[in-house]
C-alpha cells in the first residue's frame, strides 16, 4: 500500500528528526572514540589520551546516545507507516484514512490536516500525560506480540481496541472550540457531563462522540478486505 500523502508546503523538523540527528552523531562519535582508543591502546602510545577516549566512548557518550536514541525511536514509532508495518489488519482503515473522498472521521481529519502528523497515535493514545505513558507501556506489549508472531499482529484475527474508545482524544482538540460550543444550538454544552462520565460496568463514555460523529473507520463488513498474513509462513 502506498502510504505517501501529499506533503504540506510548510514542513518543519520535528523533535523526532532532531533526536535522530543527535543520536546518530553520538553513535558515530562513540564508534570513532572506541575504535581509535582501542587502536592507540594497542600501540602502547599516548596511553592517557587512549584512556580518556575510551572513558568517554564507553561511559558518558553511550548513555546520552541511549537516551536520544530511545526518544527518537519512540517518536518515529508514532508514524502511520510504523503502525501499519505490523497492523496489516488495518489495511482498509489506512486506505480509507488516506482517501480524500471518504467521509469517515479518520479520513476527514487526515484530509483536512486537522491532525497533521501521526494520526494513528494521536487518536489511539489516550489524552494527557498518563495516556502517553500508557501508550508507551503498551508499546512493549506490541513488541512482545511482534516478536512472538502473534496472530493479532499478523492481522489474522479481527483486532479490537484495548478498551472502549474514550472521548478524551476528541475533547483534547475540540473541547472549548467555538464550533464545538455553538454547533447544534449548544448541544455540546448540554451533554457535557455525559461526555465526561464513564459507565461503571464497561468503562465506556456514557455518551461517546462516535455515537453522533462516527464511525471513525469504515466497518470491515462493508468493504472488501484483503488480509495478507505477511509473516505467517516465516
Amino acid at each position: 500500500m502506498d502510504l505517501s500523502i501529499e506533503v504540506p508546503l510548510h514542513t518543519g523538523s520535528s523533535f523526532a528528526d532532531l533526536g535522530s540527528y543527535v543520536a546518530s552523531i553520538l553513535a558515530v562519535a562513540v564508534l570513532v572514540l572506541v575504535l581509535s582508543g582501542w587502536l592507540l591502546e594497542r600501540t602502547r602510545r599516548v596511553s592517557a589520551t587512549a584512556s580518556i577516549m575510551l572513558f568517554l566512548g564507553l561511559t558518558i557518550l553511550p548513555i546520552f546516545m541511549m537516551l536520544f536514541g530511545a526518544f527518537a525511536s519512540v517518536e518515529q514509532a508514532k508514524s502511520v507507516e510504523f503502525c501499519h508495518s505490523c497492523h496489516t489488519a488495518m489495511n482498509p482503515y489506512v486506505a480509507d484514512m488516506l482517501d480524500r473522498d471518504s467521509t469517515t472521521l479518520a479520513a476527514v481529519h487526515s484530509s483536512e490536516r486537522y491532525i497533521p502528523r501521526d494520526p494513528c497515535y494521536k487518536c489511539h493514545a489516550n489524552y494527557g500525560v498518563w495516556g502517553e505513558a500508557e501508550a508507551k507501556f503498551r508499546g512493549f506489549a506490541h513488541l512482545y506480540h511482534w516478536l512472538l508472531a502473534s496472530p493479532t499482529a499478523l492481522g489474522i484475527e479481527q483486532i479490537e481496541t484495548y478498551e472502549p474508545y474514550a472521548n478524551g482524544p476528541c475533547l483534547e482538540c475540540h473541547s472549548g472550540a467555538k464550533s464545538f460550543l455553538e454547533s447544534g444550538q449548544g448541544v455540546h454544552r448540554m451533554i457535557a457531563d455525559n461526555l465526561l462520565e464513564l459507565d461503571d460496568d464497561t468503562g465506556a463514555p456514557v455518551t461517546s462522540c462516535l455515537v453522533c460523529h462516527g464511525p471513525a473507520h469504515p466497518k470491515l463488513a462493508d468493504i472488501e478486505v484483503e488480509i495478507v498474513p505477511e509473516r505467517a509462513e516465516g
Partner: peptide, 24 residues
Amino acid sequence: ILLAAVLTLVSVNLCTALTLSLFL
C-alpha cells in the same frame, strides 16, 4: 558499546518493528 552504537544508527535511521525491538 560498539554493538549498541550500530543498533542506534540503524534504529534511528531505519525505524521498523525489528530495528526498534533490537534497539530497545
